[in-house]
Design a protein around this nucleic acid. Sequence first.
DNA 1: CGGGCAATTGAAACTGCTCAACCGCCGTGG
DNA 2: CCACGGCGGTTGAGCAGTTTCAATTGCCCG
Lengths: 245, 245
Amino acid sequence: MEDRHGIQEMTAGYGRFESATGRPADPSVPGERFPAFARCASPDLLLPVFRIRQYRRQEEIVAQEGVPDFAFWIVSGCVRTVRQWRDGRRQIGEFLMAGDLFDRDDIGRGRFGAEAVSPTRALCVRVSALQELAARQPCVAIELRQHAVDRMRRTLDRLILLGRMTASERIACFLIEMNERLGAEGTIDLPMNRTDIADYLGLTIETVCRGLAVLRQRGAIAIDRSRITIFDRCALERAERGYLN
Amino acid sequence: MEDRHGIQEMTAGYGRFESATGRPADPSVPGERFPAFARCASPDLLLPVFRIRQYRRQEEIVAQEGVPDFAFWIVSGCVRTVRQWRDGRRQIGEFLMAGDLFDRDDIGRGRFGAEAVSPTRALCVRVSALQELAARQPCVAIELRQHAVDRMRRTLDRLILLGRMTASERIACFLIEMNERLGAEGTIDLPMNRTDIADYLGLTIETVCRGLAVLRQRGAIAIDRSRITIFDRCALERAERGYLN
DNA sequence: CGGGCAATTGAAACTGCTCAACCGCCGTGG
DNA sequence: CCACGGCGGTTGAGCAGTTTCAATTGCCCG
């Protein structure tokens, strides 16, 4: 299995751990982000526990009812957490980007599944091993803690968005969020399609299209398929005004 | 101050800790629930860190922008976490009942405030002290961990509710949740008013009233102000069908 | 008994959804 | 090489569910 192969490469040393990923673990490589603790934790503790996994577009990472033993650290690509009904309704919990981490607790222990939105490379870590690591290496524990806090903040923000924002506010909010997370100075290459956006924002795909069209007509953005260019960030912020009040 | 007085009482020993609350820490006392670790942790570690606080109806516990140093363990009563806009829109994050715990991270570090829905008694613990306690006493750490997992599950359930459920589904869902949490065998004495319910479910107060009225007309429930009696739980479960699919 | 507040009900307005058609791109196969 | 089909995205028209606005009821408490 490739898993076995990956482990052997990684256990050979810190350098091999990097080479096992196929590229150097340099945060400056566009789109790739490795855990900060990969730099501060001692390699002999770190290396035996990681595997690298690759996922194709739309590939399932964790089944909806799944409670995996592994935590996943996204190195590149984009993942959605998703819950689907038999009647077709679907809710996306969050989009996870390079640098994000998730495990069974973060997807609600069987509430949500996880799927690759775009081709994704992830560090795959047994939860128990990660916990042991965190117990020995303070910098790991700190980073995990920070992730948990950030996730709760973002999830609470989603409650406000889904509970009390209008369609146009949600869309503006989404663009600002994506601009900050993918942040290439006003040009966003969205990894997800309109259906994913709609299921993330609790809207229909048509409403998302119309909302984007309104922003385009106002000169706030330009739309070229999945590439959104932001001309007038203030207009977006006005559109999501409620968020800040 | 009563704080000082409370501390002195509590530091006197385990028995005084109980008496400081005014009543024995017996889980069987109706409506009162103390942390399980109050039984397993050694008293000399536990006692110096706790204070008891009482809050009147509608009293603010944590300001919306507040990041308190304390964690709160609700012994009796009901608390809402709430975010409010200047334009009047309001979203309730969750209702916290006896036995529930929250701290600054659970309310999003300044995202939500906390207010007493009904007269509330809470154990108030400095976060750093609780963390130290958890580091020394495994049973405390386990209980805190379980709370965090439960909270994430419930918050993710709220995402689905707010994003993809109809008004009647939300209302049925709410009644089932409250029945399970307040659970007196089919009779629910809701501590919160209709406005709170509406802001919890992302609806208006009128829609909540109408939804309840429909359930009453179908013979599923009876309504007497804040007292709801459930006659036909299956009808409620049908009304929230999407939730389970 | 009256004031005030929460809850309820009714009617109209509106936001967002549903259904449908259409566009443009791209890969495939004749 | 081009026709075709599929898919994602966009736009339009009508509809439905929810909100808004308004009026009324019921209850508690002074």
